[in-house]
Design a protein around this nucleic acid. Structure first.
Lengths: 259, 259
DNA sequence: CCAGCAAAGCCACAAAATGTCACAGACCTG
DNA sequence: CAGGTCTGTGACATTTTGTGGCTTTGCTGG
């Protein structure tokens, strides 16, 4: 591994974890601690990180608390789901990505694809996609919800309904064998429903924690969702319901450690 | 294998992996490291890759370069202008903020105000405003320009024309005594013109560097702009032109050091 | 509060790795 | 064969890395 890779790997580790110790990084990259310190000094000089005694942290958090917190929950599950879902996308497609945190990681995984047309209502997804590669990025605007960092209002619906995506990537707040796909926020649910008859294939990305949550707003039934990508097998009643409705269930590979 | 094949193979390897070491490539293609270095020098000369010590990477792996770079240029001037411009905004107002880097700093300064309705076409401004205070934030969406990190197309125009802001904050690419307010990008200019008859007060924020630039697209004449906030006195002809058109010139306080 | 201690940081030096340059031979082409 | 390009080699320059000595930091027990 060359120095440049190590330095971006340090930044990547910080992006995931928020902070790291020097000794841990030295061990991980199999170099001396002094080398890590030298890397960190460089990163600090250009303002990318902040040194603290014994380690290194990110400067002022780039995202606001609630969203950032959700982004870190079940991180490895979400990233492995995202990798799998990104595999369903082919170069040149038009892809809608919603404002869920799992969807954000899908957007990250799409960085290496070519010539996509990406549509989103999420400020974070749009900001992340801009500046990577040559994708065209369309942002459905409107009044922004600070908690979700996205627009769900009539303006956003109108703009997004102008597209006929090959694939729509949806997060869901909860999934239930009896009621199907649920959310907590009525506006968010209404926004998603507005896309159900537009996308040619609708993929829901959801970690296993969503199977035991109780949602409050109905978004879709199993018959309306083509694929569900998750990290662990759902409870049997949910599997039966999915089969009955025609929803394919994909289990993502667990993350490879130390690859 | 001839040189041309090897060079495209290097690019292919980079597309897959993002970066490679020189020694690895030499081994893979069974040529000397010096040969690989020569290939890489060629690729670097035409901008396809970036050389790093020990290897080679794709350009712009974590690129936000153009926007970030502009954000740092003339930083203190921009922030002092932004402080002054933010002083023109009162609690409860509806404020439009455009996608210029000086405007971004105005948005930052508005964090402490109460109950504003903020409208912007800039992803960065929206992301920054969200999560501070209780402002309502409206983002005019559409196809995003990666360089400006904002939308300027018909969708964005339509949405933003739905508002009648008390104040619109505009950056400008150049200001000229003869031609008035200019920009470099036709789309950006058209977007701003669409707001000229909507905002009750139009404030242009521009550091002194804009007085010596040559713009390429006309945005507005002095008669259409109510206020110009800048950091140093403009050249006399420009002052005369501003007075003739009714544009008030505000000089911002120099930045306080160590505050 | 402070002395003492261990961990962490910094610096300087030398070794190792990598980069650059110039030169000469190999190879192709007309 | 002349002229050009491409390649490998070795000398030399530059950058990076590990190590040891020393200083600083943060913690803890008195």
């Amino acid at each position: 591994m060359i120095q440049a890779d190590r330095i971006s790997a340090i930044l990547a580790a910080l992006d995931e974890r928020g902070s790291c110790s020097i000794s841990e990084l030295a061990l991980r990259f199999d170099v001396s601690e002094e080398t890590i310190r030298r890397d960190v000094r460089q990163l600090e000089a250009n303002g990318s990180v902040i040194k603290v005694h014994g380690g290194v942290t990110l400067p002022a958090p780039r995202l606001e608390a609630p969203y950032r917190k959700r982004l870190r929950e079940q991180l490895e599950a979400k990233r492995s789901i995202a990798r799998h879902a990104a595999g369903l996308v082919q170069d040149g497609m038009t892809v809608f990505i919603d404002s869920g945190t799992t969807s954000f990681w899908v957007a990250q995984e799409l960085g290496h694809r070519k010539g996509l047309t990406l549509v989103t209502n999420s400020v974070e997804v749009a900001a992340d996609l801009l500046g990577r590669s040559d994708h065209r990025v369309f942002l459905a605007g409107g009044m922004l919800n600070a908690d979700y960092r996205a627009a769900f209002d009539a303006d956003a619906v109108r703009m997004v309904r102008g597209f006929l995506p090959d694939i729509a990537i949806f997060s869901m707040g909860a999934i239930d064998a009896h009621h199907g796909f649920l959310d907590f926020d009525p506006d968010e649910a209404a926004f998603k429903r507005a896309l159900l008859d537009r996308a040619r294939r609708i993929v829901v990305v959801a970690d296993h924690a969503k199977f035991s949550r109780v949602g409050t707003v109905h978004v879709a039934d199993f018959g309306q969702i083509h694929d569900l990508v998750t990290d662990l097998p759902p409870p049997p009643p949910l599997i039966d319901a999915a089969r009955g409705g025609g929803t394919a269930i994909h289990l993502s590979e667990p993350a490879l450690q130390g690859g």
